[in-house]
Design a protein around this nucleic acid. Sequence first.
DNA 1: GTAATTATGTACCGATAGGTATAGATTGTC
DNA 2: GACAATCTATACCTATCGGTACATAATTAC
Lengths: 203, 203
Amino acid sequence: MSSGRQRSFCKKAALEKAMIVFWCNGYSGTSLADLTEAMGINKSSLYAAFGNKEALFNQVLDFYLELHGSSHSRHLFEQQHTLQERLKNYLSSIARMLTDANLPKGCLICSSTSELAGSCLPEKSSQIIAMINRKTVDFLTEFLKNEQKEQHLTADCDINKIANYLLTLQFGLAVSARNGSELAELLAVIDRAIECFNNTVSL
Amino acid sequence: MSSGRQRSFCKKAALEKAMIVFWCNGYSGTSLADLTEAMGINKSSLYAAFGNKEALFNQVLDFYLELHGSSHSRHLFEQQHTLQERLKNYLSSIARMLTDANLPKGCLICSSTSELAGSCLPEKSSQIIAMINRKTVDFLTEFLKNEQKEQHLTADCDINKIANYLLTLQFGLAVSARNGSELAELLAVIDRAIECFNNTVSL
DNA sequence: GTAATTATGTACCGATAGGTATAGATTGTC
DNA sequence: GACAATCTATACCTATCGGTACATAATTAC
């Protein structure tokens, strides 16, 4: 146990509040005042616990992935379903999160990706976001490669292109949700998007 | 001819410079200093010619649509191609714009849509962006309805869902471009995305 | 030429940005 | 209880935010 006065707030809860604010307003749309108000702490505590705005944002990105980004992939491994069904369940799980009534609309990573390429994001945050997207594609590529090995995908189809297609879909769904689309609409889009696998999925 | 001293800069050229800045950095990531520097004019001239930051942004949105948003749809009406080919050409035209080396990556409307739902955009700008997206879906719906009437689409397919699917695709492509995808990757995604029409396109 | 009109440049405004200094409060260690 | 360590509250910092006042410059109408 470290000595000294102990923190009067729950760090995880505060991080979650910060996440909501960044998720709603983006990095450059969020001020320290927005953060301290939402987190219920003052500036000193924020800086002591999290560093500064940039460091807090980077921790929020991690926290977001853990809380809302990592659970969907389990649908890809439920072997009682066909690959096409699993892909549909995976995307549907994401769509539910994107339109969750208790959360901001859309996806923090996607919105942050839209903030890339300008000068509004700190260098390190930009790198983290780029890496997250790269990892998503890499993960999907590995997954699809294995599916191909197990002959759930035809041997001639380009795995990497399919992974890119899936990420693009996720981005599109996220912005659509941001634009006000409801879950049912996103699910209809997913139905349509999955049809393109009719000829490449063999099981 | 109106009396008084005449403007020393080209309003259209200044608007284009402003467009680039907003396109790169988003609304809340752009400061008046960024704008005046890029436009090569000072604050007084900006306010005299365009109103204020919000009014300038709204004019930029219009200008952007005119310059980079309205030309793609012509591909939908080149009757020598099949509907599937025309859809592909339409999306490919957008993809070329999204990755144009002389322009910021991605799409101003899509990036602005990502800024929606927070408190970072002025009310009127939010309404304009929502309306632009609505008009895109409406346009696509009307187009597809006509294609269905001419029996290029099966009678049972849901036009509105396809229009939504196409808008979602555009969003996804825009964010992917923002994320660093090259034209070839976007074109591959489009190829994949268009395959889902194999069973609904009858001509 | 004079007046009216419009554009520009400079200086300025209050508010807020992100961040820090410092003093006081609260804790564990010894 | 003395001390060190940690957290918190208030005040403060400089820079920048979007926006304006006002004097001056340039142009047309008469």
